[in-house]
Design a protein around this nucleic acid. Sequence first.
DNA 1: AATGAATGAGCCTTCATTCAT
DNA 2: GATGAATGAAGGCTCATTCAT
Lengths: 230, 230, 230, 230
Amino acid sequence: MASPLVKSKPPVLPEDTRTKLLDAAGQVFAESGFQAATVREICACAGVNIALVNYHFGDKLELYTEVLRHSVGASGNGIIKKAIGSKAPPEEAFRELIHAMLLRVCRADRPGWHFRLMMHEFAQPTPAMASVIDETMRPVYDRFRELIGSMLDLTPDHDQVRLSTHSVIAQVVHYAHARHVVSRVWPELELNPERIAQIATHIARFSLAGLRQIAPTPTRSAPAQLNRKK
Amino acid sequence: MASPLVKSKPPVLPEDTRTKLLDAAGQVFAESGFQAATVREICACAGVNIALVNYHFGDKLELYTEVLRHSVGASGNGIIKKAIGSKAPPEEAFRELIHAMLLRVCRADRPGWHFRLMMHEFAQPTPAMASVIDETMRPVYDRFRELIGSMLDLTPDHDQVRLSTHSVIAQVVHYAHARHVVSRVWPELELNPERIAQIATHIARFSLAGLRQIAPTPTRSAPAQLNRKK
Amino acid sequence: MASPLVKSKPPVLPEDTRTKLLDAAGQVFAESGFQAATVREICACAGVNIALVNYHFGDKLELYTEVLRHSVGASGNGIIKKAIGSKAPPEEAFRELIHAMLLRVCRADRPGWHFRLMMHEFAQPTPAMASVIDETMRPVYDRFRELIGSMLDLTPDHDQVRLSTHSVIAQVVHYAHARHVVSRVWPELELNPERIAQIATHIARFSLAGLRQIAPTPTRSAPAQLNRKK
Amino acid sequence: MASPLVKSKPPVLPEDTRTKLLDAAGQVFAESGFQAATVREICACAGVNIALVNYHFGDKLELYTEVLRHSVGASGNGIIKKAIGSKAPPEEAFRELIHAMLLRVCRADRPGWHFRLMMHEFAQPTPAMASVIDETMRPVYDRFRELIGSMLDLTPDHDQVRLSTHSVIAQVVHYAHARHVVSRVWPELELNPERIAQIATHIARFSLAGLRQIAPTPTRSAPAQLNRKK
DNA sequence: AATGAATGAGCCTTCATTCAT
DNA sequence: GATGAATGAAGGCTCATTCAT
């Protein structure tokens, strides 16, 4: 190894411009959306020259796309991937996935950006929307359909499965999407980890009951008669 | 002919400039949100001179506020007011309200503007958000809490009531808010009146089952007496 | 006639912004070409706000196109149109046309812009070039071919006619195109009207001799034998 | 092997950076002119880092000047130098020089750069114009004056000599300068070597006839003794 | 009540150039 | 010599707004 005395730069603080830009852009885009955000604000926020977004990313849209791509793979996503891959029994996996998504959706820090960005995509899609959905939303959507399908003993393409999937995802996403409304009609609500866990539990319980209602017979034990899978 | 001296105003000019502007603005704001909409586009769409938004409304934000205020009272809202005031038994009123909201949320025509505008407020609140929520969202929210509270035999302020209310509203609003995602992951879905009725039925059924699950007394075995309060 | 006392605004000085912009743009574009000219400079030169080129013309290229279109019809062009339509015998019409073109090409004032603009088009064509050529250059070109064809007793499409036409036009255009070179290698040359007349006479005489050389026999008197028209 | 101590430079590195830059710059400048060309494009085209133009040449203008200086002496110029120095009789030398210039002016390849660059200088002079003219144009100009003076039996400073010189040079340069116009009004024209030779012949014949006409003695009847001076 | 013209600030982008290594 | 990153100025354009009529 090289001499540890000489030229020992701080090893964990490279914090290069590209990263600073991605960070600032993530924050600003998550706050204001693609259109309303200005590269000036982003650069000011990152403390770098305005011409650097052109140098590092080409233009505003590519910076945005990169922010999206980057935030998909952010560390916080591990929890979702893990929940998607869970081998637990359906109901348990179902609870896990809801909790993971809700955590992801409610955190305002780095890993929470992605869903906040998506909220803006919902209201005003950009050219990047399609890939965002495909890379971020669809895996969750498909896993939910799988789980719900198995619980209802229906194929993932069945109308009831899709509607139920929407019902579940809607409840989770709501806390990110409608957070301004929620915090106005229920100002006391504070989204700390305990609360989030509690809400996740509520959603899971509420939805599992809804699913059982939709399943013609009390599921699992007697998957017998009508409307069954294939 | 009317008296030529009194400068009798045209009694009911069916489309004066102010109205044309409000109409056009409603459409454009509902499409693009406050920020992304331009007064030029609105005026072009209304076929009036660009200086008139300033003359009639002061500035863009006041035009927007006026659009919101105006659209709250729009005729199409009758269906929601009626559903809110329904005297039917709770479960039936609950179904009615869900259907009314969903209809309102999914139609892109004139009376649907208001909710579309709110979708944009969610992603990017304007100074007008507070009053929008208070005038539009809270009545629905409070009525749902009332209904759910009565079904769960809990006060409207109880955590479980609030969480359940969010669960219900989230499912409805989802079809407006996430419509781009929905139409990507489920392209075949077409929101015609029949479909909307079917979705409303699903949400009501799904949610009522969830509510029964949440009710303090284990209702699984006896889903009968659901109306205990305190 | 209206009262000469009241409201007598200066009749010949409307000088509206559009015109001021066209004037300034003509000057700046003629000086620097399309690319190198900046709309900021044009607006500063016209003494108007920079946003007005967008308001009146849409964008820089349309302003440029308008300048070209405008300068084609400028008053100074009458002399060329007159020369093109001259009914004099070919040699005389030939002299007239050369003189008219040379005058047009050498004046730096308003009507001279057009050819100066074309010089820039030559070095660096813009999307407007095609129409510029068709509207400005081709009529002159075709008339020269006609005249030369009749003097050589050949069709206007004959190679010799085309080459000779180029030879003539080249000599005229040269004084505009290569003016910087000319004024460096011959600083004493001053392009006042007398000089221009003298140069025109030279070009005509020089070229008519060239044409006679190309015509197999001394033209006009004995248009007899070989290589004749049709 | 060479001595490992002396840091022997590579004797003739066929393509060092400086040369690569000069080459690329020549091409790009010839295409777009000084202003419109960007150093980025030049460096990309040369495959070198963008900072190297500053390192090697100081700035864009000095690179340009160097390109001009360099291209004057380019190998392809031999043909012109040879034509200038020709010891043939005036008419023959005249023909040679016209052909040499036309060749140089019409070819788009490496040795043709210099004249293409000059075309841009004509439309938009840079600070380098003066020296460009002096080094490139004036030798040709002076030689033409010499030849024409000797044919007209007048001093090179005589007005008629200068005007005639312009007439000749104009015809040659025209095919480079107005090439876009030419190719629009005469699309079939293709400037291959045979065509170029044919055009050169035309110009020479056309111009020699013009010169005879200009000569003080009425030469129409006796085109014989053309060599009177003073 | 309405208009066409005008304004100034701000947008994203790109340029030639220079810095630190 | 050579590099990648950084810089500040300027480019064309668009915005909400206001002026004079």
